[in-house]
Design a binder for these strands. Structure first.
Lengths: 215, 215
DNA sequence: CGACGTTTGTGAACTCGTGCACGAGTGGCG
DNA sequence: CGCCACTCGTGCACGAGTTCACAAACGTCG
């Protein structure tokens, strides 16, 4: 009940950050406790799911009352490993890479962009939006010196697999891939993907099936 | 077989674009036919899943041979509604909105950015990366004139729900939300979300559980 | 033209996640 | 001090999606 032995389902893990965001809002409102129903509404799920999800973390609620917002937020941050910052490296200093380096949402939520790396010598040396640009060959050194454990791939699709291999070599075991291609990583490495156009294609499917005329 | 009342599972729909991308590669290589096993390898799934997924589209394969690449690609494009372009509007001309407007991956895959809209009068009137910037009040007119059916929300979280309401009013029923917040849309509207920091938080979870020291 | 190797299409078993329903605590109130 | 309203935690049934296994269909070759 209290600690380890329970494996948290992947679907639950994916929802924890959403709950955490809701809790952060509640904290700002100085709300002391919250019910599963209220939290469910804020997170866009149903109450039973919230309770089941939170029960994987432990019995942090109080029957008849709800959950203590501050305590729950702390426990959840701890479980998510968000009690300290995680510096990230962005690989690929092209359009997407620059945009991501400039996107404040990473730093604000505990993921400062510590470095940009690129394969092109021309881009190396300067700074982009305050982030130093290094050559990809320096990646192992950078990772070690800056304590980088998470990498973001923002290269063209054609370069993505090679980059993934370099990252594996550098000991980085958490990768977020923006390149529109499937890449393979060593066993034990976490890989998540974000494909912007793919999301639109999915929307296109439902749009087309709603309105067969297409317009 | 051809056009039945087959309801395609959501999980399958999400994989179709990945298959389509693989088929496009095969087309470039002038490959005429492909087996489920090969396609599975390219798409990063297993062969049984590929066959089941494709069977929802119809019986387009030939036993003992495989799938005709060109024919399958065409059928899949048709099913996904990708036989023509879908102009999209990006709401929010801030960092993220500008970056998305500049991201070539949308246009390249059939989703030209037809307009940017923003609530700030200051940004209205000019162009950003060749995309005209309009006021959000013009959205209904723009949607009608340009035939826009899909919108991308790239505003701060605080504005997202209000934007969603405006979009609903303008008759747009496909939304891709980049704002890190839960928004609600009318029944019958498709909503997908991309939360960049959330993905990193998920990675953080697994990273932290792999290496409890945290470094 | 029939046997054989290949690959699809799909029923069926299985896994994983969801939602319901309800027992078990908790605090408040008379 | 006992009852009551409230809310959590969880066993259970259900459903969606995945994987397996195999028969059916196809091309080839002797």
């Amino acid at each position: 009940m209290s600690d380890r032995s329970r494996r948290i389902p992947e679907a639950t893990v994916a929802r924890l950050p959403v709950y955490l965001r809701s809790l952060a809002e509640l904290l700002e409102d100085k709300t002391a406790t919250v019910s599963s129903e209220r939290l469910a509404e804020m997170a866009g799920v149903n109450a039973a799911k919230v309770r089941k999800d939170l029960s994987y973390l432990g019995s942090y609620g109080t029957r008849g009352v709800g959950y203590d917002v501050e305590y729950l937020a702390f426990q959840m941050s701890r479980e998510l490993g968000l009690t300290h910052d995680w510096p990230v490296v962005i690989v690929g200093a092209g359009n997407l890479g620059q945009a991501l380096a400039n996107y404040g949402g990473f730093r604000d939520r505990g993921f400062p962009v510590a470095a940009l790396v690129d394969a092109s010598r021309e881009k190396v040396g300067g700074e982009i939006h305050g982030v130093p640009v290094h050559h990809i060959d320096d990646l192992p050194r950078l990772a070690a010196e800056l304590g980088i454990a998470i990498a973001v791939i923002a290269t063209p699709a054609s370069a993505a697999q090679a980059v993934a291999d370099v990252l594996a070599e550098a000991g980085i075991r958490s990768i977020l891939n923006f390149a529109p291609t499937v890449i393979s990583v060593p066993e034990g490495t976490s890989l998540r993907k974000v494909d912007l156009a793919l999301e639109l294609q999915i929307l296109s499917f439902y749009q087309a099936h709603r309105d067969p005329s297409g317009a």
